[in-house]
């Protein structure tokens, strides 16, 4: 089925969207004094208590912020990078007191763990992996999956973390004969991992055995789609992909996310929901994040748009604030907050 045959989510006019769906909670004013490259939320343990902290990253500094009260944040740790710039934060669920970051110039060259010494609480870095890293994702149970190399010499590795940030266990997954572009853990089926490839396939692995279970070619209209989430229910796989290259049409508007349903037994797939912008909104997908059933995207127009995948329509639009376009959007891993970053480095925290 092509994109044109997919059911389109309702496209309410911008005026009908409830702005109350997003409430500003607090703000980090230009925390790094330079352009932000990423933001994330994680748990950090101090004096025996776990606190929900914010991690901000610019090219040469990663900072950890702890809450002073419901409105204010205090910078408690800073890691500096003088040789290779920071590209992104890699959140790893179930891990406390450890931040993973990817470093490189355009291409990812290193993955590092950032942590603090237990003795003097000083910041330190541990090199976890180096090479031609194509894709990576933090997984449940303190694991990180990464792929290095291209199709003929591709290596897909799972690292499990020890408390001190070092890798305590390494396991290889069977590589497909296509270069992996993105990974997604499958909610609802423990030990299933999904990947998308550069030539339009979806692959599934068994994380426990390392087996490559299935390679499924999907319609060419999903060319080089990035997978943001996967759910397994009643024998079917529901996969959320973004559509950075999708063409705008009069009937469908500007598609940003798409929900595919795949039967992993037969490798047949169909698009079931197309998340397009409300009427009157322009822009294409720039970057985005999906958590449970809500999908958020920064658009080329500088606006952030949010869709509820269960309701099937756009539920909130966040236009640029103070004439500053949005450049980052992330769901918090610690609560139902949305972290929104501006080009000048300001970070805003909204309750959704």
């Amino acid at each position: 089925h092509s994109t044109e045959q997919t059911e389109t989510a309702d496209r309410p006019a911008c005026d009908n969207l409830n702005p109350g769906n997003l409430q500003l909670v607090s703000e980090l004013k230009n925390p790094s004094s330079s352009c932000s490259v990423d933001v994330s939320a994680m748990w950090w343990e101090r004096a025996g208590a776990k606190e929900p902290c914010i991690v901000t990253a610019c090219e040469d500094v990663v900072s950890l912020w702890k809450p002073l009260n419901s409105l204010q944040w205090e910078k408690v740790h800073t890691w500096h990078f003088t040789e290779v710039p920071v590209l992104q934060i890699v959140p790893v669920p179930d891990v406390y007191n450890l931040i993973c970051v990817a470093l490189g110039s355009l291409e990812i060259r290193e993955i590092r763990a950032l942590l603090c010494s237990s003795g003097d609480d000083s910041e330190k870095q541990v090199l976890l992996k180096s090479g031609d890293i194509k894709a990576m994702l933090g997984l449940t149970k303190r694991r990180l999956v990464s792929s290095t190399g291209t199709f003929c010499n591709q290596q897909i590795q799972i690292m499990t973390f020890a408390d001190d940030g070092s890798s305590k266990d390494e396991q290889l997954l069977m590589p497909p004969d296509e270069t992996v572009l993105t990974f997604a853990e499958v909610q609802g089926t423990q030990e299933a991992l999904l990947g998308t490839t550069t030539v339009n396939s979806i692959v599934i692995w068994n994380l426990k055995t390392g087996q490559l279970l299935k390679k499924m070619h999907i319609d060419d209209s999903y060319q080089a789609s990035v997978c943001h989430g996967a759910y397994s229910e009643k024998g079917l796989l529901f996969v959320v992909v973004s559509q950075p290259c999708a063409k705008e049409s009069q009937a469908l508007g500007s598609p940003v996310f798409q929900l595919l349903v795949i039967n992993p037994k037969t490798a047949q797939s169909v698009g079931v929901l197309l998340c397009s912008l409300p009427q009157g909104q322009a822009g294409r997908f720039l970057e985005g994040d999906v958590k449970d059933h809500v999908a958020a995207a920064v658009l080329t127009s500088g606006t952030i748009a949010i869709w509820d995948l269960l309701l099937g329509h756009c539920t909130a639009l966040l236009p640029p604030v103070s004439d500053q376009s949005w450049s980052l959007v992330k769901w918090s891993g610690t609560d139902s907050h949305l972290l929104a970053g501006q080009k000048d480095g300001n970070i805003f925290i909204y309750r959704y």
Binding site: M174, T189, N206, S269, V270
Partner: peptide
């Protein structure tokens, strides 16, 4: 949207594919 076109569905797809795939 009908899922009839997707072929027979198995609730145990993960276990079945794991037993069929090469180790």
């Amino acid at each position: 949207c009908s899922t009839a076109d997707l072929g027979p569905i198995s609730l145990n797809w993960f276990e079945e594919l794991s037993s069929e795939a090469p180790p």
